[in-house]
Amino acid sequence: MSDIKVRAKLEGNETVVKCLMNHPMETGLRKDSKTNELVPAHFIQEVVCKWKDQVVLTAAWSGGVSKNPYLSFKFIGGAVGDPVEVSWKDNKGESQTETSQIA
């Protein structure tokens, strides 16, 4: 169901990373239109982005981030072929990891 798409591209000396995650990002406040019951909260709380073994970015999110979150960030020092790893954890304890090479 869920998966992460990661694209990392070297532009000059900056590596630009763009990721898309599949996740419902339910705030816990939305009502199901049919049953009129609250849809339980289910959102990504933490995203860790690594370049080789170095943590470049740690994001902490609330349910206020849009469904199927998009995240883009930049860092300095990457080289073509270096691995970039993006992983998330949500409030139900589920997690996912994806690795991509800098192009």
């Binding site: 470049v56 902490a60 609330s62 981030v65 930049k74 860092f75």
Partner: peptide
Amino acid sequence: LVASFALGAAAM
């Protein structure tokens, strides 16, 4: 508060 990002040493 929607999101916070902790930047590592290499991050711009």
